[in-house]
Design a protein around this nucleic acid. Sequence first.
DNA 1: GTAGGGTCTGTAGCAACTACAGGATCAAGG
DNA 2: CCTTGATCCTGTAGTTGCTACAGACCCTAC
Lengths: 143, 143
Amino acid sequence: MERDHAGASELRRSDLARRTGCNLETIRYYESVGLMPDPPRSASGHRRYGPAHVERLNFVMRGRELGFTMEEIRGLLSLVDRGSHTCAEVEELGRHHLEVVQAKIRHLQAIEAVLSETISRCTGGSAPDCPLLDVLTDRPAVS
Amino acid sequence: MERDHAGASELRRSDLARRTGCNLETIRYYESVGLMPDPPRSASGHRRYGPAHVERLNFVMRGRELGFTMEEIRGLLSLVDRGSHTCAEVEELGRHHLEVVQAKIRHLQAIEAVLSETISRCTGGSAPDCPLLDVLTDRPAVS
DNA sequence: GTAGGGTCTGTAGCAACTACAGGATCAAGG
DNA sequence: CCTTGATCCTGTAGTTGCTACAGACCCTAC
């Protein structure tokens, strides 16, 4: 006879981790900050997860993969949890995040332009003169 | 007569901050982690900065603007401080950093592609159906 | 019954700052 | 000379998104 077993889909924490690919400690972290609900516990205090937890963790993980902050995911989840969300509301969160992503890309591209241009002027030799150091020290390039 | 004044270019912390555009607290932080040297102090313990500090802080700040980590900047500084650096050494640090930046750009662009494609399919209406939520829940798009 | 895993909690660490609190000190005006 | 307000000092805690312990408990299989 099995004790402490409320159904075929009761997962331990390591099962949930394996199934979702999420780090074990990260699951606890998501619970501690309220992204994941506190799961029911066995008599001895061990967490027991059901299919709803798997779904929710997948949601959170996909959100993170798309670069949403935990705050944004919280917003998305609360829309969904409310049960009366609209596409327009979700889209707005998405569009805002998209703009942030695009701004980051532009920022990195600006850095990339300076870096690659500067490095392309490096001789790579054993002399101390270096265009990259010139940029960092703001010494104007020798014209 | 001026007391506590060892030259025309002795700066207080707020002067250094203003002159470089660096946050006041950040200067202390850089000192605490060794990116900036501990400056000499006045009799009462107030920091006094000279031109060398301005130069070094500018170096650090330009490095940060180019996205170098503090560890990388530490590396660059130790090359320069050693006094016998070569362009090849500096270039290698720069090239490595460039690759990191390019990888970040690619990562963000992949995110951007998914996000903008998904959001473009949003109707923005008051219905709960939403392509972005579909992606997050991994519900396959209705074909 | 015991060995080995897994689980529990709390805490500290990472990067790179930023922001206080609570006190000392300085510079200028009266 | 004294007050006032700005600036300085230190130490500590907060931020984001985890990750990694330590030390105790528990659970399962042999």
